[in-house]
């Protein structure tokens, strides 16, 4: 555990160093990567470990985003407190939801969370406090003055999100190795066998769902920080799908690849943009290509690296060894 802590601290220093050397756009993308890392981590916890599948994590992110924005805009609470609240309240919401949904398996849960993803953002138009289509502006405040004059807003975002992502991943990698992680894996492997070993399956599933929701809420709050407004259109159905894709591509049963998925999700719109500009900036291409890439990637990942790129590499190395030996 101490070794892992040192590893994470070292990784943090490396990221800090990189953040100082690249231009503004890359720093901003780095912040997005950190946000997606947390969100994908929450899916890996849920799907990879406890075996439940959610197509509605975009909606949970929206929930967290609204909580954070309301905390800052209406109650003028400090930023860090708003993030804690976002994670906490979304976790509780997820727990309540999980009470109904976590008793379900596979497609039932998928469909229910899909309904959540379609339905929840439209609630924003129902209550005036949520600001309708325009949403709520979240004032992130200026970076602390002691960081210097030329310390930009984006770099501030990058620091906050990266720190959050590092802490989250450290916590996640610990809990997945703890007795809880083992219990969840047992649950995923064989529910009946887990039950026979004295695992309270229902309770464990709700717990996993609640923790995963809390992480999604935190990711949502951080996403809102980087785009500075929370509105229904920031959390479309395609966000939920993209998160699942990111998780499957990074290897849904392993936390190690989590950044790979996040990087891919951030790169895809950029690829789409550059392809579109090559073909004369057609609206058709810009609006459809990201979806096409995400979906194609999802299917290819399921077909060719169903248990993650890590396993595939391991497999290849094994094969080569067998040949040479």
């Amino acid at each position: 555990m101490r070794k892992r802590l040192l590893l994470f601290i070292a990784l943090g220093w490396v990221l800090l160093f990189i953040g100082d050397r690249v231009d503004e756009l890359r720093v901003y993308q780095g912040a997005s990567i950190a946000v997606y890392t947390i969100a994908i981590g929450s899916i890996i916890l849920l799907t990879g470990y406890s075996g439940q599948i959610s197509l509605g994590h975009g909606a949970l992110m929206a929930f967290g985003g609204y909580v954070a924005a309301l905390c800052v805009a209406n109650a003028s609470l400090p930023l860090w407190f708003a993030f804690v609240m976002a994670a906490l309240l979304t976790g509780i919401f997820g727990g309540v939801l999980g009470f109904a949904a976590a008793r379900l398996s596979g497609p039932y849960l998928a469909g229910t969370t899909l309904a959540l993803a379609v339905g929840l953002p439209s609630l924003a138009n129902q209550f005036s406090i949520l600001g309708g289509e325009q949403g709520i502006y979240l004032d992130p405040g200026l970076p602390p003055a002691r960081l210097g004059e030329d310390f930009s807003q984006y770099k501030w975002f990058f620091w906050i999100t990266t720190l959050a992502a590092l802490i989250t991943m450290f916590w996640l990698s610990n809990i997945l190795r703890s007795k809880y992680g083992r219990t969840w894996r047992a649950l995923r492997g064989n529910e009946v066998a887990a039950q026979l070993c004295g695992v309270h399956t229902g309770r464990q599933k709700v717990l996993a769902f609640a923790l995963s929701s809390g992480l999604a809420g935190l990711a949502g709050a951080l996403l809102v920080l980087t785009i500075s407004t929370v509105s229904p259109s920031a959390f479309p159905l395609s966000l939920s799908f993209a998160l699942v894709t990111g998780a499957v591509v990074s290897g849904i049963y392993d936390l190690k690849g989590v950044m790979l998925g996040a990087v891919i999700l951030v790169i895809i719109p950029e690829i789409a943009d550059s392809v579109a500009s090559r073909f004369g900036d057609s609206l058709k291409i810009i609006s459809t290509l990201p979806g096409l890439l995400v979906s194609a990637l999802l299917i290819l990942a399921v077909l060719f690296t169903p248990n993650g790129p890590g396993e595939k590499l391991h497999h290849l190395r094994h094969k080569r060894k067998a040949h040479s030996g």
């Binding site: 599948i53 497609p107 999802l298």
Partner: peptide, 12 residues
């Protein structure tokens, strides 16, 4: 989860 994920991809 493969069927769910695959049909989702196909939808996209």
């Amino acid at each position: 989860i493969a069927p769910v994920v695959a049909t989702l991809g196909l939808l996209g």
